[in-house]
Amino acid sequence: MKRQFVSFEQYKKKALQDPEIKKSYDDLAEEFKLISDQIALQKQSNNKNKAITTQQSNS
């Protein structure tokens, strides 16, 4: 028997049709948004620090 490839998006779409899974997914959305925002701020801060370091080493 040959298995058919299922992309993550296809799997997610099918899984979220289950009301229990959908509720859990939605309940975690805010937490994942906060984590995503924290990561973005850290990246932004790191980029600023690299720019400052580069400017200082070129002086």
Results as ranks from 00 to 15, higher is better:
residue 44 Q to W: 00
residue 33 K to S: 14
residue 57 S to F: 12
residue 21 I to S: 14
residue 58 N to G: 08
residue 2 K to F: 03
residue 8 F to T: 14
residue 37 D to N: 06
residue 57 S to N: 14
residue 16 L to A: 01
residue 27 D to A: 09
residue 52 I to P: 00
residue 42 Q to R: 04
residue 58 N to W: 06
residue 9 E to D: 13
residue 20 E to Y: 12
residue 49 N to S: 02
residue 36 S to A: 10
residue 18 D to N: 10
residue 3 R to P: 05
residue 32 F to P: 00
residue 33 K to V: 10
residue 36 S to E: 08
residue 44 Q to E: 12
residue 31 E to F: 05
residue 28 L to W: 04
residue 37 D to W: 01
residue 36 S to L: 08
residue 55 Q to R: 15
residue 43 K to I: 03
residue 55 Q to Y: 06
residue 1 M to P: 12
residue 13 K to F: 11
residue 27 D to L: 03
residue 7 S to Y: 06
residue 40 A to N: 12
residue 4 Q to V: 05
residue 37 D to K: 10
residue 58 N to H: 12
residue 26 D to N: 05
residue 40 A to G: 14
residue 36 S to P: 01
residue 47 N to I: 08
residue 22 K to P: 01
residue 50 K to M: 04
residue 54 T to G: 14
residue 3 R to A: 04
residue 7 S to L: 06
residue 25 Y to Q: 01
residue 49 N to G: 04
residue 26 D to S: 05
residue 45 S to T: 10
residue 19 P to R: 01
residue 26 D to E: 03
residue 4 Q to L: 06
residue 1 M to Q: 03
residue 22 K to W: 00
residue 3 R to D: 04
residue 54 T to W: 03
residue 51 A to C: 04
residue 36 S to V: 03
residue 11 Y to G: 02
residue 19 P to M: 01
residue 20 E to H: 11
residue 34 L to N: 07
residue 1 M to R: 08
residue 41 L to P: 00
residue 33 K to L: 09
residue 16 L to K: 00
residue 52 I to V: 03
residue 9 E to I: 08
residue 18 D to A: 07
residue 47 N to C: 13
residue 1 M to N: 06
residue 13 K to N: 04
residue 33 K to A: 13
residue 15 A to V: 13
residue 36 S to Y: 07
residue 25 Y to N: 01
residue 20 E to R: 09
residue 18 D to M: 04
residue 58 N to S: 14
residue 47 N to T: 03
residue 16 L to D: 00
residue 1 M to S: 12
residue 48 K to N: 06
residue 41 L to N: 05
residue 2 K to V: 02
residue 2 K to G: 05
residue 31 E to N: 15
